[in-house]
Design a protein around this nucleic acid. Sequence first.
DNA 1: AGCCCATTGTCTGTATACAACCTGTCTTAG
DNA 2: CTAAGACAGGTTGTATACAGACAATGGGCT
Lengths: 251, 251
Amino acid sequence: MTMDKASDRSLSQTVKAQLALRELVLRGALNPGERVSELQMVERLGVSRTPVRMALVRLEEEGLLEAIPSGGFAVKAFSEKEVFVSIEIRGTLEGLAARLAAEHGASRSALLNAAECLDEIDDVIRREMLEVDLSQYVELNARFHRILIDMADSPPLTRQLERASALPFASASALVPVQSRSPELHHILTVAQDQHRCVLTAIERREGSRAEAIMREHARIAHRNLERALSNQRDMDLVPGSALIKRRIRA
Amino acid sequence: MTMDKASDRSLSQTVKAQLALRELVLRGALNPGERVSELQMVERLGVSRTPVRMALVRLEEEGLLEAIPSGGFAVKAFSEKEVFVSIEIRGTLEGLAARLAAEHGASRSALLNAAECLDEIDDVIRREMLEVDLSQYVELNARFHRILIDMADSPPLTRQLERASALPFASASALVPVQSRSPELHHILTVAQDQHRCVLTAIERREGSRAEAIMREHARIAHRNLERALSNQRDMDLVPGSALIKRRIRA
DNA sequence: AGCCCATTGTCTGTATACAACCTGTCTTAG
DNA sequence: CTAAGACAGGTTGTATACAGACAATGGGCT
């Protein structure tokens, strides 16, 4: 965890700065609205101004920072509604991906790959009833979503979705851990997995409209998780980048 | 048109470089796939390497350039399918915007503003029957789409749509001029304008699903225009950035 | 004659120096 | 006591120097 400084000599300084800076922002080390000083980051990240500047520009495009009119960048703050819409955007684009995959047909190998992924998720959910460890589910879930997007086979859509998922709390599995302490956990995972199976079936059968609708609804599970996280600070802490979300009431 | 070089001393060098470089790419002055050399751009744009580099990064994020693995950037080439999907993405997101606007209600002033814009478009279409000058229509059309997006009042969605419309041939009115020589011109403008009116009505009546469907279909007019442009090189020349689109057959 | 290796030229990645700008504070005049 | 202006500190925007990497080319060896 603390070996980020000198490690990875192979990576370019720019990438190193980008990763480290994103980590800082997500961890909440910089306060929302606060200006991110280039020079401070120079001494904090151990690289010169040029890569820092590069990283700042890229993180702005990513949506984690926003440009200050007078120059420089500040940590962005997100309202509850903005998070909600970000999730809706992702769901809409994933819906589009599913529809395109259904309409022009997915490759046999991709379908098998996806089915295999779902079987593994089933295993994890079964085991989940004994010991709660969502990391595997989160990873497999992300993998399934990636397979689905690849099925659309449309680079521009992939790009847009990457961008939509760049906001940490908008990505496919960012809000899953929120439910880890919930008694509904198993219920929710079961429902989500059923949607996974349904959308895959719809794609196989070339039912584009259905595939799209399912993916949209699937993303709305994240809305529920968000709702829960906004109520309990304890659950909120499980979400990466939660420090960027403006709370409704300050306790 | 030729006063871009030394003018606008107030603008930052980075912005100047970005605008000039985008112009070069869209004009087709750089061949798709070709590497964009920083030093060559330095002497071509009259600014130093730092702003050039900045502009390159931003144009990559915009989608006009792509990173070369070994370093640097190249002009991106788009397949017919990629253009098609880019249009579909824009339509989908505009559909989402219309639905959100309908569901949570648009402000009275925004609705009036939009209606006024549509009246102006009506005027232009009427005049269009005499003299063909689409520039006004293009501008008003863009304005209406912007008003619509603003009605959603969702910064993340606005951002994503800006990004989706960054590709020149994917934006709302980029492909309109394609029809300027077509006998169907008046027909198409009439249909498009009717969709404008319908979507506005749907938003007023809080018919979210309908508003969304209309905007999606509305964007598909661009598909038809694209089809036409791909057949006639003469029409293709009217589209900015057409040089980036890979032709199916090389004549 | 063909292939491999070395060398050279050009490119990008990085660091840093300089200048213009904005901001906040302190002083001074009304 | 207030308000306006000037100054100082720090910030970013820009330019340029340097080093490492990649690619192309030419010569030598087989």
